[in-house]
């Protein structure tokens, strides 16, 4: 049973009908192919219409869709010989961030990112993708390792934010994130980041200060969650929809603001409707980004990465 979002109700109804018809067809032997075909065309049209002009708040829902592919799915399909690496060598192993070495379309890379989990067990194991300082210190360790061996870094971002807890604060969440950003801006290897679901605030930028930042078509990237923003500025979380509009958190807005470098298209109806297709297109986009950097020397890569962020937001906004 697929999971439907609120705004997908008309689509859900149509697809329910199609299912029903197929069932009936099987029993009675009546030719219903025409009717099914007609309904399918209608459903597709509806999908095209609603996904063609998703509001920012609808995109928030799609980005958090429970069936949306996560880091583990991308690693499984895109990375051969994946060898996960664990631990921050200081306190613990944070499973909210997964990372390791592997082969991406033939070349060895370091791949890392947040994993939200796909069922109750795995969600708890990965802390819903919200990392503690150990997670960021592990990410930093992996970046330094990649730097040492000349491995390009692929970072897939999908988090509601860094974990807000007593233990996380006690062990220096702020410092861990700051250090991670600092290392991101120091390494001399190609660094590509992709926002694949939610890019939640400091917890996201910690591993996204990259040479190229890609974003899936319906992903979001924001300084604060719309709910958090609404409860502060509107004094009520019920205004989350208004906050989502105001924050300009969609890939389309962020490309205009030059915060991201390109948008990776999603299959019709969102990444969750055709997981192999979205994995393929992200893989292609990552490969293109890496190829663009393959001839550039490390020091230049680092300088360009820094220049990009220094220049960001300076031009063409007024």
């Amino acid at each position: 049973m697929p999971h439907y979002l609120d705004f997908e109700k008309p689509i859900a109804e149509l697809e329910g009908k199609i299912e029903e018809l197929r069932h009936l067809g099987g029993d009675s032997g009546v030719n219903i192919a025409d009717e099914v075909g007609r309904l399918q065309a209608k459903a597709e049209k509806l999908l095209r219409q609603s996904y063609g002009r998703l509001t920012p708040w609808q995109k928030v829902q799609v980005a958090r869709h429970p069936d949306r592919p996560h880091l583990v799915h991308y690693i499984e399909s895109l990375i051969d010989e994946f060898t996960p690496l664990a631990g921050d060598r200081a306190f613990g192993e944070d499973r909210a961030i997964i990372g390791g070495i592997g082969r991406f379309r033939g070349r060895p890379v370091m791949v890392m990112g947040q994993e939200k989990g796909n069922d109750t067990d795995s969600r708890i194991r990965h802390n819903f993708g919200s990392a503690r300082p150990e997670g960021y210190r592990k990410a930093r360790r992996l970046m330094l390792l990649a730097d040492r061996f000349g491995l390009p870094v692929l970072s897939l971002v999908d988090t509601a934010g860094a974990y807000p807890g007593i233990d996380a604060e006690a062990r220096g969440q702020a410092e861990a994130i700051a250090r991670c950003v600092e290392t991101s801006l120091s390494i001399e290897v190609p660094f590509v980041a992709a926002i694949i679901g939610e890019g939640g605030s400091g917890g996201a930028i910690a591993i996204a200060a990259a040479n190229k930042v890609l974003m899936l078509e319906h992903a979001i990237y924001s300084v604060i969650s719309p709910e958090g923003c609404a409860s502060i500025l509107w004094r009520s979380a019920e205004h989350a929809k208004d906050a989502a509009d105001a924050l300009k958190l969609t890939a389309q807005d962020l490309l205009r603001l030059e915060v991201i470098d390109s948008i990776v298209p999603e299959p019709l109806g969102g990444a969750h409707r055709d997981v192999p297709a979205v994995i393929q297109s992200l893989g292609d986009a990552l490969e293109t980004a890496l190829l663009e950097m393959s001839e550039i020397k490390g020091g230049v890569l680092r300088a360009r990465r820094r220049d990009k962020f220094i220049e960001m937001g300076r031009a063409g906004l007024s």
Partner: peptide
């Protein structure tokens, strides 16, 4: 970060780190 500048305010994290 200043929420009213959205993701651009988030980008001040890498900028100030530099």
């Amino acid at each position: 970060a200043r929420m009213q500048e959205g993701t651009l305010s988030l980008m001040q994290m890498p900028r100030t780190v530099i």
